[in-house]
Design a protein around this nucleic acid. Structure first.
Lengths: 246, 246
DNA sequence: TAGTGGTCTAGACCACGGT
DNA sequence: CCGTGGTCTAGACCACTAA
């Protein structure tokens, strides 16, 4: 269990500040040499630290010490920028793509439409303190938002919805699971394919209880911590609520 | 990118039912041979499938096809057994330990007490269809539950609270993050140290708004999918709510 | 006891990033 | 262009599981 010792040693260097947040770790070959081991074993230790959220990888660039996670409250998280600023982080958004497309099977099921129907798909990459942390893809029902693409869609959809269409998010049905990053999502996040990820899927409703859009979010898993307050209801409601979403 | 092809090939065997839920995959050496590669590369592919939640490992026993995840709603999840049964799963609980201890620093902070104070610590291992999926550790304030250990604590604390102490969970503050399994927790789950995990931390309040206990849950990450309905509040409440928990 | 997974060695080549 | 990380080879020994 050599790699456990290596993990602990690196961990301690992080905790004592020898390795600082955001800084790059030494090259794998150098680390391997300094721990008197091979790259394979060293990478075992690094993978462990990665899965604990202590360090992260940028594809072909190396390993870095993770910044603190963003606290994400599904009850309030309609505006990424506001959430980031409230936590003293610098948010940034880039529009990756925006177009009207046909829904695929998964989206059609989520939005309760058919694969013949059109939806707006808006893909954005969001960063915290210059580190890309999440790819968000929104699928939006055009019937509620005609000519949506003429407005600002790079920053807050919430604001555009409210100011141009008088629609406000009031309810969100969300799912959270873990998975890994792949393909374009991984590239956008500058992550190696296969990096661990937190996957958040949300169905959003307006003030009239219309389902107006859904979004799929792939987070670098160390960049997010879900945190919220739940008011418990009686257990009998349980089953019916769940059936609807599955 | 050989390991991606191997991953896809195994994935397809799972999807087409050649490998069935709960069944063990062939030995690593045999898989490696059949894909004409080495164990290291094969294990790269297996690790990817593991991080996607398609397969899981039992320490020194091999790789198995993952059953569907349990849907976990923080708004209703006060009884593991009820939740499992509602989803046609067979729940099982084992008491790992139960004693009165001094709070450590983390627990003291969570429960708003000092490290001199005593709390009940109850550790339970919970299984679905004979597969251990989560280690739950409860830390309970004795002032609200004198002589707690005289009652049944293996199954539902909720029920014991209600029937013997007239206290009902009404509010839960929860946190969700990803981490890896280690030490006793990994062993109890029959998992290899370092396996990916979902970590759920909850603070529970009774009908009089007393904080009565907290619990730390380490889930096999493929065994759980968080799913809930959030009613959105105005953004200004956001900051104050978050500060309290961090 | 045989076979398995857990761990480790000692290399190698390539494509890409940064200089 | 050099150094890096990404990927891969071809083994090895050990402790443990399952028979």
């Amino acid at each position: 269990m050599q790699y456990l010792k290596i993990k602990d040693a690196i961990n301690q260097q992080i905790n004592t500040g020898i390795l600082q947040i955001g800084h790059k770790l030494p090259a794998e070959r150098k680390l391997a040499e300094s721990f008197n081991t091979t790259r394979i074993t060293l990478r075992e230790a690094l993978a462990l630290l990665e899965s604990e959220g202590k360090i992260y990888r940028e594809d072909r660039r190396g390993w870095f010490v993770s910044p603190p996670a963003l606290i994400y409250d599904p009850n309030y998280t309609t505006e990424f920028a506001a959430m980031a600023i409230a936590q003293d982080r610098k948010p940034h958004s880039v529009l990756l793509s925006a177009q009207l497309i046909h829904a695929n099977q998964h989206i059609a099921t989520l939005l309760n439409i058919t694969t013949n129907d059109s939806v707006y798909r808006i893909e954005r990459l969001r960063s915290l303190d210059s580190r890309p942390v999440v790819v968000v893809t929104n699928y939006i029902l055009p019937e509620f938002f005609p000519d949506l693409l003429k407005h600002d869609i790079t920053h807050s959809l919430t604001v555009t919805y409210r100011e141009h269409y008088q629609r406000i998010y009031t309810k969100t049905r969300f799912r959270i699971s873990t998975t890994s990053l792949n393909g374009n999502t991984a590239s956008a996040l500058r992550a190696t394919a296969g990096s661990p990820a937190m996957f958040v899927e949300r169905l959003n409703y307006d003030q009239h209880d219309n389902l107006i859009d859904c979004d799929l979010e792939y987070w670098r898993h160390d960049a997010i911590r879900i945190e919220s307050l739940a008011t418990l209801s009686s257990a009998c409601l349980h089953k019916t609520t769940q059936k609807k979403m599955s």
